[in-house]
Write a protein that binds this DNA or RNA. Structure first.
Lengths: 223, 223
DNA sequence: TCTCCATTTACGGTTTCCCGTAAATATCTG
DNA sequence: CAGATATTTACGGGAAACCGTAAATGGAGA
């Protein structure tokens, strides 16, 4: 079994139980292996590398609450990217409240993830199984992930789309949004282009009005 | 310190660490005192009462994931209401991911809650402090709750408002919503009344358009 | 440079929404 | 029951959004 495992998780209430799961797998407990910030996680991995005692596995959350301590890296995905650049062979297991299949799948594809376990009703067992699977050099995508059909096609909004939607939520009219885009050199900026883009998105997602689009964006944490 | 404490929490990853916190406070560990469903919690409290060994404290989550096991009681607030009816002197501490001050305050007022701790960066310590405070017969409202100014005035939508907004999100036009209200005997149902109501809400909340209203509802879990 | 193609903008008609006012209906009060 | 008040609806003008088409613009390649 793994000997050196790092946990990056901002909530002590979760961090503790991951520790417990590791102990049940016979992985020795060490206070230094539990960090509450992404920056600390990266620093510890770097340090371990320097000391020629690299970590074998990183278990990380995806979202980290902001607090008084300003951080360079503010979320798990960015952390994983940085970590993989530093130590490509390090196994990475995500343990997150996010339980949409598509989100996990995206991380597997983009970040060469080794495992994904959503927090949930059987997360302790799930986590244990994932660690064992990864130890055997296999990937582990938890079966407890929500595989909603519509979820597999997460609409990909461009940064311009996001800008438009953000302006809508700021209370701007479409004419004002056109002026805003022009001012910020976001092209195309014409009023007509905005109308067309919104229509195209709504057509794709089978929506009748913009309110539905806003709800969709909120549901999928796009804004 | 308390001797008999019941934990109602659906995620093992959180349940474990609450157990640990209790142990650190010298409260004896017993597998029967950790339940994963609201119905089980109520049953255990009833049983303890019958055996003349009542619980002293209930630590409960607010939201419980649905799964294959159908439940009578599906959320913490309902559980607390039922529990207080059964054993009015039982202390209740809520431990939830929800960290809005207004939500906690509402529970204090309506359910005679004894403590509220949001999951977060210092939740373990926070939880410990809360239990100690409650043991001294005092109320504990965690200082880590988000006290957003706008949060204190959560706009109170009527069931008719919710119906209108739901119809908007179903893609209905205002004319169609009027027909819908009429069909469902929700008064007033006139098109004009819908226009006026939406305008009134937007005026109150300083919004320019309905999209902002939808975003607001999503942010505050109104729909 | 010219042509072709794709993208963007301009324009006009239509629908929906917005918003004030007036009429109609309901509710309350003596 | 009459009169006063409040609520709801009807109506109409105007603004914003919607939507198709045509004109303009901008590159890429010959």
């Amino acid at each position: 079994m793994f000997q050196k495992v790092l946990i990056a998780e901002d909530f002590p209430s979760v961090n503790y139980s991951v520790q417990r799961t590791l102990e049940e797998l016979g992985i020795a407990h060490n206070i230094k292996n539990h960090v509450y910030y992404c920056d600390h996680a990266l620093a510890r991995i770097q340090k371990a590398l320097n000391e020629n005692e690299p970590y074998e596995l990183l278990i990380t959350d995806l979202s980290f609450d902001d607090d008084a301590t300003p951080q360079e890296i503010k979320d798990g995905a960015t952390l994983i990217k940085a970590v993989k650049a530093l130590q490509p062979d390090l196994k990475v297991l995500v343990f997150s409240i996010e339980n949409r299949f598509a989100v996990a799948q995206k991380l597997f594809n983009e970040l060469r993830l080794d495992g994904y376990v959503p927090k949930g009703r059987s997360d302790a067992r799930d986590l244990q199984l994932a660690i064992e699977t990864i130890y055997e050099n296999k990937k582990h995508l938890s079966g407890n992930l929500k595989k909603v059909p519509s979820d597999d096609i997460v609409y990909d909004f461009t940064t311009r789309d996001i800008a438009i939607i953000t302006q809508i939520l700021a209370g701007a009219t479409q004419k004002e949004i056109a002026e805003y885009l022009e001012k910020n050199n976001i092209t195309p900026s014409g009023l007509s282009s905005i109308e067309k883009r919104l229509k195209a998105i709504k057509d794709d997602l089978n929506f009748n009005n913009n309110q539905q689009l806003i709800a969709y964006c909120k549901d999928y944490n796009i804004i």
